[in-house]
Computed example of a mutant assay.
Amino acid sequence: MYTLKTMALSVLTLALFSCGGDKKTDSIPTATTTETTATTTEAPAASGTNEYDPKRGLGPHENVDVSKFDPAMAAAGKKIAEVKCTSCHKPTEEKLVGPGWKGVTQRQTPEWIMNFISNPDPMIDVDPELQKQLELCLVRMPNQGLADNEARELLEYMREIDGAK
């Protein structure tokens, strides 16, 4: 019985820490790790970037060029997802802890996705659709401390899931 309790406690501890990621407190870097024609253009924080836009969300990502698919970036995004995301999300429509990723790039703009995965808390606080999702999932998405390039790579992986080539 003692071994069973110890194993259960170990699994619970692992589950809690696997969603935490390594939180970064610095400003978000703007350099990308892979050379690509699909880039993120970011404007400095100005008036207007703090106002919620349901098409863009809240955050620095204003114009994300997704005109060309980058398989190397998608592969890097898949690796990030395997470490930081797949304990809660599946690449299908199936809900795990959070919603499945299939179709997300058709429902949301690239800017909205990048702003949300980069810093989910402010968007969850104001977006009525995210608040409904929170009621279904019962778990608030943790901030994984993603750098801009990591968020962009995850977006490219999500695009690959949805059939981008």
Rank of each mutant, 00 (worst) to 15 (best):
L16K: 11
A43C: 07
P99Q: 09
K55I: 12
E160Y: 15
A31I: 11
E150K: 04
Q144C: 06
Q131N: 01
N50L: 09
Q131K: 14
L9D: 08
V64F: 08
L138K: 11
D65H: 06
I80H: 02
T41Q: 11
A38D: 03
K95R: 13
T92K: 06
E94W: 09
C88D: 02
T13C: 15
I28S: 03
S87T: 13
N119A: 08
I80Y: 02
G163A: 02
A74T: 03
S47N: 10
P128Q: 01
D121S: 12
F17Y: 12
C85F: 03
N50V: 14
E135G: 07
A46W: 11
L146P: 01
W101K: 04
D162F: 04
T41V: 11
S27G: 10
D127H: 01
T6V: 09
D65N: 09
F69L: 02
V83Y: 06
P54G: 02
V104T: 15
G59D: 00
T105E: 03
G163N: 04
N149Q: 10
P91N: 05
C85R: 03
L138V: 10
N149T: 08
R159N: 10
W101P: 00
E135D: 15
P110V: 07
D70K: 08
T25Y: 15
I161M: 03
T39D: 12
V83S: 00
G98L: 04
L16D: 10
A43V: 15
H61S: 14
N63I: 06
D121Y: 13
G100V: 05
T86F: 10
L136G: 08
Q106E: 11
T6D: 14
Q108A: 15
Q131I: 09
L146D: 03
E93A: 10
E129P: 03
T33Q: 15
T92Q: 08
G145S: 07
E111V: 01
P91I: 03
